[in-house]
Design a protein around this nucleic acid. Structure first.
Lengths: 337, 337
DNA sequence: TTGAAAGCGCTAACAC
DNA sequence: GTGTTAGCGCTTTCAA
């Protein structure tokens, strides 16, 4: 029905009997065209089914309206929710998300970032992955705005948004102590992650401050199956812990299942369990998990705000924003008197 | 440390003392350059930190190496897993995924698709959204390859990949009947979805074939909270169903929680529950959900295969591939003798 | 306000 | 095998 090949601004121009630049102006947000001209052009465009080519536009303006998102995986629903929210807000601002999956290892992240620069993305968000130092340099040299979501890095020239994991860990320690826990265990996430380190550091500090020490520790790598194994190891010997802080909700579910369904223990009467994130499933009655809420929506909003401000003006200040979290009391942990 | 602005092939050419086209050839997979030339160019490129601009390349070749993915949301982990797998396999093939979030309503999908065409994506995958007829036309007119993931459409000129939802529904009916269920309920998903319609159709056919009829039906819209409400309504009056087929796992969890924790019923002794999808959480001991497995990995593989084949040759056949699912027997439903 | 002309960074003929 | 040239579809001076 239509000649083959995409419709160009020239086709529209010819049909409308105007110059090609008139067409361009009509579709450029802030260019001046008379009302009459705009109408003629839009009509012709409509008839031909014309839409401006964003790639061509990007070549001129240097603005691709593409933001890259590097993420390791969606096993943890905290990240799939964040992703959805991120994509949605960016879309509302006229950007779109180009996704790059990276394994946990820094090497693969490096390769992925190199690729992503080829697309001339305007900004970069990383979630659940760390950046090598080399990469950090490469990126800041490429002068592409970047913000790390839910991670922090020693490099102070990179924006980051997270919740206060140290404070969160400390709150859990205090909560557990006040509830009368005596033998307290910790199931760690992947030790390369700043979230893991911060949560543990805060937790240990909180215990110390309360005059307590850690009774047991295992590593679950933020992974369901490994968390199960960690729980089995931790509860193999008697006496077992009477409370466990698990570095995120996703692992906490695995731990609870082991305690209840393999070991026949009761939560929270035998063992208190506290998680981190407050993913939707934490509120489900089967788990009813006491946890530390990360303010995802806020974190996403700040991430987008930071990224866009740095895209708009290259010398916008590098910020690391740390938002407050809070304990959500539910039924998986004994409550303080 | 470097002059501002991105490094172009001209910069590399100048530094290497060769022509710009030599640079282009060096970075084009199947172009002929002497070994010596390639080395010189690569060295210069390395020193300058040059990488070819994919946008510029796309303008010439018409190949952006971008595939658009339209998705409504990730509430259901089946989709976040599929997304991850899709992004991963596409990435392995040299493509990347540009994400477009669409609400369930067709109108918003339409707007989103218009936008996505502007990026000159090479292909389009839709997941968990339906397409209006207008849109379907617009897309096939734009001649952009599209495949619908986990959805089917009446239009026979669009590729689709799904599992056999009709057969799946039928299997559940037979399973329940053989297990001795007498009062069988169904909690439906969003009624605009082909998955919902097919599962229900198969289920009803299976019941009919076994000489049974539906005892109760409610709608949960594939949504956690609405599934809870559906379950409450369904079990408000006595006698209540002794078995429920829930249109997907995500809702089945909500239903089980209501049955056990609000109504004090036992699963499966009081009520058998069967879901659909076999998401990872279905295997968790708290739910231990009997369900119909959708072969996600296979579905993804076929989706990518279909899409790429249509990208490579415009007249590759339009296919609708329906993969087999299978019941995964776990503990949430009474087992047939 | 409008049109003509010059590129954005690259690939793809085309000569050499 | 290598360099030269002409665009890809658009935005953006620059004149008119």
């Amino acid at each position: 029905m239509r000649r083959s090949g995409p419709v160009t601004s020239y086709d529209v121009a010819r049909r409308a009997g105007v110059s090609q630049s008139a067409v361009s102006r009509t579709f450029s947000p802030d260019a001046s065209v008379s009302k009459a001209m705009a109408r003629r052009v839009r009509e012709a465009a409509e008839e031909l089914g014309y839409r401006p080519n964003r790639l061509a536009r990007a070549m001129i303006t240097g603005r691709s309206r593409i933001v890259a998102l590097v993420v390791a995986h969606f096993e943890n629903p905290f990240y799939s929710e964040a992703f959805e929210l991120l994509a949605l807000s960016l879309q509302a601002e006229g950007y779109h998300v180009l996704t790059f999956m990276a394994a946990d290892v820094a090497a693969s992240t490096d390769a992925v970032i190199a690729e992503l620069l080829d697309y001339r993305v305007e900004g970069l968000i990383t979630a659940s992955v760390g950046l090598s130092n080399e990469l950090t340099r490469a990126i800041s040299q490429a002068a592409i705005p970047i913000v790390m979501f839910n991670r922090t890095q020693d490099h102070h020239d990179i924006c980051g948004v997270s919740s206060d994991n140290v404070a969160g860990g400390r709150m859990v320690a205090e909560y557990l102590l006040r509830s009368g826990a005596r033998r307290i265990g910790y199931i760690a996430g992947w030790e390369g992650a700043s979230t893991q380190r911060d949560r543990e550091a805060g937790f240990l500090a909180g215990l110390a401050q309360g005059g307590a020490t850690l009774f047991a520790r295992e590593v679950g790598d933020f992974h369901h199956d490994r968390a199960e194994m960690a729980a089995r190891r931790m509860f193999a010997a008697a006496p077992h812990p009477d409370a466990v802080f698990v570095a995120n909700d996703h692992m906490a579910f695995a731990v609870m299942d082991v305690l209840r369904h393999e070991l026949g223990l009761h939560v929270p009467s035998d063992v208190s369990v506290i998680g981190y994130d407050d993913v939707p499933a934490a509120a489900w009655k089967s788990y009813d998990l006491t946890t530390v809420r990360q303010p995802v929506r806020q974190m996403v909003a700040v991430t987008v705000e930071l990224l866009l401000s740095r895209i708009d003006e290259a010398d916008a200040p590098v910020q690391r924003r740390v938002l407050a979290g809070a304990i959500v009391e539910r039924g998986s942990a004994r409550r303080p008197a």
